[in-house]
Design a protein around this nucleic acid. Structure first.
Length: 575
RNA sequence: GCGCCUGUAGCUCAAUCGGAUAGAGCAACAGCCUUCUAAGCUGUAGGUUGCUGGUUCGAUUCCAGCCAGGCGCACCA
């Protein structure tokens, strides 16, 4: 609806420019919003206010002139002629076009236009809201990527929900999306993990142990040690530790990665690719990346270490890629990893990182640019950490001390749907309070139920209608514009309008990488549905009106379903 | 000290790339179930958008400087 209207305005502006009524100033983007106030029409543009400066004329004068052209029937015909070829939806008919305030143009659409949109929703059904703006470009989203040294905790859950919702959103607007998990299976942390398990294992045999300060303290390490004892008995009690540690490292790593995979699966987050850092270290991938940097003349040696001059690209200090002891840094692998991602043919890369990694952005962007990739192609989304509360009191969590609440704990208590919705309700760059007690309540304080209940409610209405011998599918597929004309109440109009905003909302949420907009939208739509339900009966004596309202309900159901689906949340038919 | 993020109703948060009178939920108070699901609905109340300037027709939004909070500033990953 909005898209076609935008095209129409664009068309009129272009014609005006051709006719010399407007200067040829390149009009970047035409603003078109849905006003908050009823009296301001269905859509409004501030275009005249923007043009006023370039034109050197009062905005109202420009508005008057544009409005005249927007009402011009001959122009309209030629637009429709041009547009028909591109399978555009029909241009809505206008009740009136009005000039208001300092120079707004307000569009009032006829009721019939809105009824037509209802039919569009029903026809598109599960595809309603899907667009092709992404033009099939390839996007990769790398997220979670938690170190395999412990179970996923709550903040990882936020990243998982965010990345998955973004993937769904981008896919729905026409991108080809891959989800990727980068496994940091290299480095001192892995040795420490193996050592921690080994010590716990010895402890099981009665030995007094001293876990190193930096070691992993969590009970899950003991759990892994027990598993080793179960499978291997006491064979690792003998001989030097050094010869056993690799086994313990690998065993712990595999066990934990198994947990991570399992928990993500439970959370309904699927990854297309799991890339171990170790893989990057093989096959000379790092050498190749460093050679590329060398050819760009950004590598230099100092004090026996190899550095990359990231300050040349906006970083605040240069970074080491090979230490004095000749070991490569994590950063070196990350450079090679990003190079590989670009070489795999992605148009866009999106990394989702926790706020504690934000200091890393400048250097990775610098190095990407240094390698010759447009820095715009890499977007890094930072999500602030999660404040876990219990009864309003902060729970301090630290993987090292072993005191934390896992994603799994939360999902088991609260459920996948509620957990995902909670994580997605807030903008990612604000910190998130997650009160376990509150979330566990799962009552009406939890907004996911509000939205799901709206969907279930429509389904319930349809069940009752069927009991009373309504053939819903027949009604939905064979409704006519004449029958829909019975939907004349302001509440009905408002519901249709809100539902029609859905495609535009999905698009803007995807473009802004802000899934939280969808949660707010759905709450609004659900609220309108509940209010309508309370004020009006759907199935009534008047068969014609019943028919029209059943169609309206179905349209709302479709939008609620599709919206929840974009968030990876189920739309139950019964609650 | 430097950098990034955030300051909006008592609390948690929105606000459509700068638009018209800044909106929801929770908490509080008063109501609504013989009806298609009360996990719902109706009503009341709540604001100098952290502070001070600037940019312009117009600022919660952009810029500068303060104030407060969070996070980061490794030849760790």
């Amino acid at each position: 609806m909005k898209t076609v209207l935008l095209k129409w305005i664009e068309f009129v502006v272009k014609k005006a420019q051709e006719a010399g009524r407007l200067t040829d100033a390149p009009c970047l983007e035409i603003p078109l919003e849905t006003p908050k106030k009823e009296g301001h029409g269905d859509f409004a543009t501030t275009l005249p206010l923007i043009l006023a400066k370039v034109e050197g004329r009062p905005p109202r004068e420009i508005a008057t002139q544009l409005a005249e052209q927007l009402n011009n029937l001959a122009l309209r015909e030629s637009f429709e002629e041009a547009n028909r070829l591109k399978d555009g939806s029909p241009l809505p008919s206008f009740e009136k076009i009005e000039i208001a305030g300092p120079g707004y143009i307000n569009f009032f659409l006829t009721k019939a236009s809105w009824h037509q949109e209802l039919i569009n929703i029903l026809r598109a059904d599960k595809n309603y809201g899907r667009t092709s703006e992404g033009e099939g470009k390839k996007v990769q989203i790398e997220f979670v990527s938690a170190n395999p040294t412990g179970p996923l905790h709550v903040a990882h859950g936020r990243a998982a929900a965010l990345g998955d919702a973004l993937a769904r959103l981008l896919k729905s607007v026409g991108y080809q999306v891959d989800r990727e998990y980068y496994i940091n299976d290299v480095g001192g942390q892995m040795d420490l993990l193996g050592k921690s398990t080994y010590l716990r294992y010895r402890e099981l045999y009665g030995e007094e142990i001293n876990l190193p300060e930096e070691g992993y303290q969590g009970d899950y390490i003991i759990e892994i040690a027990r598993a080793v004892r179960g499978e291997e008995s006491d064979r690792y009690m003998y001989g030097p530790a050094e010869s056993h540690l690799p086994f313990f490292t690998r065993y712990s790593y595999e066990t934990i990665l198994g947990w991570i995979r399992r928990d993500l699966k439970t959370f309904r987050v699927h990854f297309d690719t799991w890339t171990p850092e170790a893989e990057i270290h093989q096959e000379n991938k790092i050498d190749a990346a460093l050679k590329l940097l060398e050819s760009k003349k950004v590598l230099f040696e100092d004090e026996g270490a190899l550095w990359v001059k990231t300050t040349a690209y906006g970083d605040d200090k240069d970074r080491v890629v090979r230490r004095r002891n000749q070991k490569l840094t994590y950063f070196a692998a990350d450079i090679a990893y990003h190079r590989e991602k670009f070489e795999r043919g992605y148009d866009r890369l999106i990394n989702i990182w926790g706020a504690d990694h934000h200091g890393y952005i400048a250097r990775i962007k610098a190095v990407v640019e240094a390698m010759g990739y447009a820095p715009k192609r890499l977007q890094i989304l930072i999500h602030q950490l999660v404040n876990l509360l219990r009864d309003g009191k902060q729970v301090k969590m630290s993987k090292r001390s072993g005191e934390f609440i896992t994603l799994r704990d939360v999902v088991e208590e609260v459920g996948v749907d509620a957990t995902r919705f909670f994580f997605l309700m807030r903008r990612s760059d604000t910190s998130l309070d997650f009160d376990l007690e509150l979330a566990k309540k799962a009552t009406n304080e939890n907004p996911v139920f509000y939205v799901q209940y709206a969907h279930a409610r429509v389904c319930s209405i349809e069940r009752v209608a069927k009991d009373r011998d309504w053939d819903i599918e027949d009604v939905v597929h064979n409704i006519t514009m004449e029958e829909l004309a019975l939907l004349a109440l302001p509440e009905e109009q408002a519901l249709i309008k809100q539902a029609s905003r859905y495609p535009d909302l999905a698009l803007s949420a995807a473009e802004a990488l802000e899934p939280h907009r969808m949660t707010f939208y759905l709450q609004e739509l659900a609220g309108m549905l509940h209010r309508f339900y309370f004020g009006h009966r759907i199935i009534i004596e008047d068969a014609a009106l019943t028919k029209a309202r059943l169609v309206l309900m179905r349209a709302i159901r479709i939008v609620l379903h599709n919206g929840l689906d974009l968030l990876g949340i189920s739309a139950p038919e019964q609650m």
